[in-house]
């Protein structure tokens, strides 16, 4: 992924004049008005272009298993999240809870709630461990830790290898546990303002006390 971004930024330099010409011909609105700012360095792209979305296209090269993850988890994660990832509030509970969301005692964990395993990998790799400081895990570490949490929750096997291909294939138990997202991409027809969630709110009839 890192190489690809470097390539993209290099290519842009050569193509820029062409793009500008094309832009002049087609979409004037896309021409910068104020011309402030500068292109990012390769280092800046490495630092910031690492969010992993649900299709996993940003996943880095690397791999890991739950067995490898168990060792890292004990050393780096258990202090907050508990030995088996069942840490107590305010630390997130990571494992278990699968099948409880529609019960009287729903247990929201990374395993029971996240619709995509990429979310788990992304947060571990980008923002964990919170103490002493994040972004301290290699891609292999993060794949292994993701595998550990998934295996602990019965979603994959202990020996399953997680990598950029297998991770996106993981069927999370709560993949279909969400209502369709409310419309996000079109403004309200009538007045051009944001389409409100509250259009389908009940007309609140003030209670006669």
């Amino acid at each position: 992924m890192r190489h690809m971004h470097l390539y993209t930024s290099c290519r842009c330099k050569f193509l820029l004049p062409v793009m500008v010409l094309l832009a002049c011909g087609t979409a004037m609105a896309q021409t910068p008005t104020y011309k402030v700012g500068r292109p990012p360095t390769a280092e800046e792209l490495r630092t910031w272009d690492n969010l992993v979305g649900p299709d996993g296209k940003e996943l880095p090269v690397g791999k890991g298993t739950a067995q490898e993850g168990a060792v890292i988890f004990a050393a780096r994660c258990a202090v907050c999240h508990g030995k088996d990832g069942v840490g107590q509030w305010p630390f997130a509970r990571l494992t278990g809870g699968v099948g409880t969301l529609n019960t009287a005692n729903p247990i929201k964990t990374a395993a029971s709630n996240m619709p995509y395993a990429t979310t788990l990998f992304d947060f571990i790799h980008r923002a964990m461990p919170a103490w002493p400081f994040p972004r301290d895990l290699t891609a292999n570490d993060s794949y292994a830790l993701t595998a550990f949490i998934l295996a602990k929750s019965g979603i994959i096997k202990d020996t399953d290898v997680m990598d950029k291909n297998s991770l996106v294939e993981v069927q999370m138990p709560n993949r279909h546990g969400f209502y369709p997202d409310p419309p996000q991409d079109k403004p309200d027809d009538k007045d051009g303002t944001w389409l409100p969630l509250w259009e389908h709110a009940p007309g609140a009839k003030p209670a006669a006390k």
Binding site: G53, P54, M114, T118, T119, A127, Q184
Partner: peptide, 13 residues
């Protein structure tokens, strides 16, 4: 991006 990215906080808490 071209879709909601299902980041940790927005998709759990």
């Amino acid at each position: 991006v071209d879709k909601a990215y299902m980041m940790q906080r927005e998709i759990t808490a």
